[in-house]
Design a binder for these strands. Structure first.
Lengths: 232, 232
DNA sequence: TATTCATATATGTATATACATAATTAAGCT
DNA sequence: AGCTTAATTATGTATATACATATATGAATA
């Protein structure tokens, strides 16, 4: 059809186009891999790769023996980059600043333990800090670190480097949970973020694990001017 | 090594483990495809597939000639499902209810046009509606639909079906932008969501396009009890 | 020293082939 | 009819091979 060389990208994009432009309506059974391979003058493996990518993106549904059809209820997914505060701020062309508020070994409250599925309250490090963009408060971070899984954190110096940045280099995670929500600023948060108590704030919570063991729980508070943007 | 059959999953998981457990530290140059293929007793293509998946997940960085290394600054991404309100509510075991507030053809205000990069204010459909979970307000939706790209929307009956649901079936999108933020409830929003004016709300904005043409802009407002949860 | 160029090399992709696996359909049996 | 079993079929995966392509490296050159 196209004079171009067959490529899984070409095929993927063409199929994607047919779906977007409703040549193939949702629910339609599309031709099999063999047929498409012939149509595009490509090998079945090449078509397979294209189809797998589209299935992974959620716009196709594939089943053995039954064939491939255009997703009827496309459970589509979007991605967002897991923000790393320094990069996020510097990428906007702003100057990044960091201020440590407190860092101490302390017993974690009930709530925190429960969130991390920890039985013991002890061996926890509590870090509170502030991230600024162009000298304006950008994010208030309240973090608990599990010293059982990351004992090195005892020796970490959080005066110059944020716990996030430190953890990235010392304790990679294998799984994570992210929660985003809106809330009202507490008195503490308000004074730190230079807003008024009760003002809306954008809150991100992040829990990370390695091999099922909880590493850290971060509670991240932004003033309501913050926007989390992502594309598909 | 393993007595199992070689498989790109086995290889992927094993490499993933080595990275998570810091056998290979960030920045390390890992063995080439040939070497890994030999180690796992698999073909290079199989190793390649495993490596490509890990690279796509952001934990490996690959460059031709230079080889593959463990990402130094893992720009990791997480995914979230693009919420479809009815499914979201029913998945929680709640009863979904829908209430149309208004649907009319109207000129869009400056702001809306700008967001959609539209020159003309006209040919727009403005829909406002409310989604409830177990009879409690769950989301207030304020949506503009571009009738130039989706003329069928004139004939759509938004009394029984939300515009989101209708659009899913009639105008698939090829690209989208999502914005999440916190805000304060306006008087209108407050009375609809049964909260007080000024209370924090979680706001999602969604713009979709087909082939570069804007389809719709949705402004979605949740009470602050709402949580957007996602895993990695 | 700096620049250009050729070369080597690791990854990227395409292909034919083969077999595995899930799931539907048909056949056979009670 | 109801059940079990076998054949069929589309996708899933693995492999050997071949060539494409980006790029690091060192050699040749200005």
């Amino acid at each position: 059809m196209t004079s171009e060389r067959a490529s899984f990208r070409t095929i993927r994009d063409e199929l994607s186009r047919r779906i977007a432009e409703r040549v193939w309506l949702p629910g339609t059974l599309i031709p099999g891999e063999e047929a498409l391979a012939e149509e595009f003058g490509a090998a079945r493996a090449t078509v397979n790769r294209a189809l797998q990518e589209l299935a992974r993106a959620g716009i196709l549904e594939r089943k053995r023996r039954a064939g491939t059809r255009v997703a009827l209820h496309p459970v589509r997914e979007a991605r967002f980059v897991i923000p790393r505060i320094r990069q996020e701020i510097e990428a906007r062309g702003s100057e990044y600043q960091y201020r440590l508020l407190s860092a101490e070994i302390a017993d974690a409250p009930e709530v925190i333990c429960a969130r991390l599925s920890l039985l013991s309250k002890s061996d926890m490090m509590h870090v509170r800090c502030l991230h600024l963009a162009d000298r304006v408060p950008y994010q208030y971070e309240d973090r608990w670190i599990n010293l059982r899984t990351v004992p090195d954190a005892r020796k970490a110096d959080f005066k110059t480097m944020g716990p996030n940045e430190w953890l990235v280099g010392h304790a990679p995670f294998s799984s994570a949970e992210f929660i985003f929500m809106a809330g009202a600023a507490s008195a503490d948060e308000a004074s730190l973020l230079q807003i008024r108590e009760g003002d809306p704030v954008f809150i991100g919570e992040r829990i990370t694990w390695v091999k099922g063991e909880p590493i850290t729980l971060a509670h991240l508070v932004h003033p309501s001017s913050h926007r989390m943007v992502t594309h598909l």
